[in-house]
Amino acid sequence: MENPVQTDRNPTVEAYKTRMRGIGKYGIFVAFLLICVVLSVVTPKFLTVSNLTIVVTQVSINALLAFGVTFVIITGGIDLSIGSTVAVTSVVAASFAHPDTYPVLVPILTGLAAGLLLGAFNGLVITKSKVPPFIVTLGTMTIGRGLALILSKGRPVSNLSDSFNFIGGGQIVGIPTPIIILLVFFILCSVVLKKTVLGRYMYAVGGNEQAAKASGIQLNKVKMVVYTLCGGLAALAGILLTSRITTGQPNAGVGFELDAIAAAIIGGTSTSGGTGTMTGTLIGALLIGVISNGLDLMNVTSYYQQVVMGIIIIGAVVLDSLNQHKN
């Protein structure tokens, strides 16, 4: 019998292409380093320990939000409600953080609970109703904002305990606590994504939902966990923010969801699902932070900064799309 040779692509060529894609993946890292180099040349203030510490501290809140939304986007979803979750958490945590009332653990836990609940609510509605996540979380965004205003009667919640304010404003062995929190959760989220069954299932659900289902993966369970996790990370960002500004702010976090989504996308997470890494998202968040810091140092007004940021987001996605079409 004739047994024709399989018309496979040449494995060596394929391996080479895979490697090239790998380099493409680091493109954002290279861009980040380049921008840092340029900024250090242009403004001598940029490359100082104190400035870089400020940048990372500022980035930490957006990065935490972006980690959560990265999980969601990898499963093929989106979460627009995290900015409002920040506000709800901020108000809730602050209400329990007045001096000489509760131990510091209480505002932290109640804040987290608020965020997890909002996230679980998103997950529940999305899995039970089959309404697109965009719509559901858009609704939750408005609900959350309303809740924050109701709970605080529209006023900032001030007079917070020192121990609570330490979370966002303190230092441990000379390192600002937000940076430590950022690193811890970066490692945790990376491990969840790369080393656990849950992480693998996230990629599977986002990569091909029907095939994931046919492989015995419970789609609803994965989505439920992912949205809850995203709410929890948003709560953490909210607590950090509240502590840094030493007030519970019902108006906090407006538009934060867009910065977080931008960080994830700049970092290579595809909005169609199935791809993305925490390292990419962290670099995306750092890139956003470094650019706005650099523009600040160069005395560029925030109006222009927004234009620059928009161009970078579109540029990152266009590059990524070109890269994919080439393959």
């Binding site: 990629y203 990569g207 091909n208 046919a214």
Partner: peptide, 9 residues
């Protein structure tokens, strides 16, 4: 393609 595998994995 639809039910068998996850292409990007």
């Amino acid at each position: 393609k639809g039910l068998g595998f996850i292409p990007g994995m």
